[in-house]
Design a protein around this nucleic acid. Structure first.
Lengths: 194, 194
DNA sequence: CCAAGAACATACAAACTAGTATGTATTTAA
DNA sequence: TTAAATACATACTAGTTTGTATGTTCTTGG
């Protein structure tokens, strides 16, 4: 991992815990054993580092997680519940305590910085679009009930995910997160035609 | 409004926008036209101010919103959907842009400060308890389907609410919030026996 | 081989920020 | 009425934190 990647990665970790405003870049730099010279060589400032973290770490990760929805073979509901199960599987007690980095950043920075806001909204929009693709396919091939508001359901699924992270964090409990996701899975299954 | 209440209230507003770490108490004090002397007379420090805001503003507000669940006459589902409708009604474009102050604070401070974490978790716990009361009554008097996991559903409803706030904030859209809450209302109605 | 830019290191500055120390006016209680 | 506590104001400090200016080494293309 080169210096730029190290700076990005360590600052991302620190930002997950302390938030963007609470992130102290110089502390991270010290921990890495490098100096300010390296930092300001690669990034013109703290904000630009933040934007780079969003573009190069957060966005690829969150869009990648939803990518399987694009062309799923076992039906759209199965594809969606697979994503939800995956979220349960890849989250540990520690990650739940920290919460969803994407949501953390939205909550903190959306009202304070337009660039952050637009970039982060774009990620959610991409997730929503992928859900809409999967759900629309399910409606077209008769897998889903008729009269489903595809976009509303897509928004709602994302909201259920972020809400589960929020609650898991509030209760410091992976179990609360899992149970909430399970209820969401139950809701998604109800979209299927009997 | 006395000086202490002014300090609490204005700092609360600023904290909703900037977060606790981003809150600059001296800036708020200047805007109020008072000085540091007044602030440190009433609060021993920034953290203690934060705790007071949680205890005296946030907790009463959020628990109050859920209080009608305690003894509702028109059935438990109606009581819960009423709360959800109320949340839609009392939120404007501006409040959605800022997000749910309770959730904001949880996301920011839970991993960083145990006192914040415990206080905030207590608020969610109180909300959950009130939902459990309403749902249990619904199960007992036969209003709800059998086999409902009362506590899981309670967690899930809170998660749906917080998720809706999070998404509304991410998309800077009250409409997204409303649509997500509507889906949650639809889910809650499905708990009813046909 | 050598010039030029890339990749850092070092030292310093400017602004901010929470908090303190102290002073004063006003209210309250004995 | 007077001592004491309350309710503030003023001025100052110590510690951060972001950022800059400048210097040095290393790499690389011609």
């Amino acid at each position: 991992m080169n210096t730029r990647e190290q700076i990005l990665s360590k600052n991302y970790e620190a930002m997950c815990l302390h938030g963007f405003q609470g992130l102290r870049t110089d502390k991270v730099i010290n921990e890495l054993g490098i100096t300010k010279g390296a930092f300001y060589h690669y990034f013109s400032g703290k904000k630009e580092l933040g934007y780079a973290i969003v573009d190069e770490i957060i966005a690829p990760h969150y869009i990648g997680t939803f990518a399987p929805l694009k062309n799923s073979k076992n039906g759209s509901i199965e594809a969606i519940t697979s994503v939800l199960e995956y979220l349960k599987g890849c989250s540990s007690r520690e990650t739940i305590h920290i919460g969803c980095p994407l949501n953390n950043l939205v909550q903190e920075m959306s009202p304070l910085d337009d660039t952050f806001r637009d970039k982060l909204r774009g990620i959610f929009e991409a997730q929503k679009d992928l859900l809409v693709i999967a759900l629309s396919r399910g409606v077209e091939n008769g897998e889903l009930k008729e009269g489903i508001m595809v976009e509303d359901v897509a928004f709602y699924i994302i909201s259920g995910i972020e809400g589960s992270y929020a609650l898991g964090k509030a209760f410091q409990s992976k179990k609360v997160f899992d149970r909430s996701i399970d209820q969401l899975i139950g809701y998604v299954r109800l979209l299927k035609k009997d």
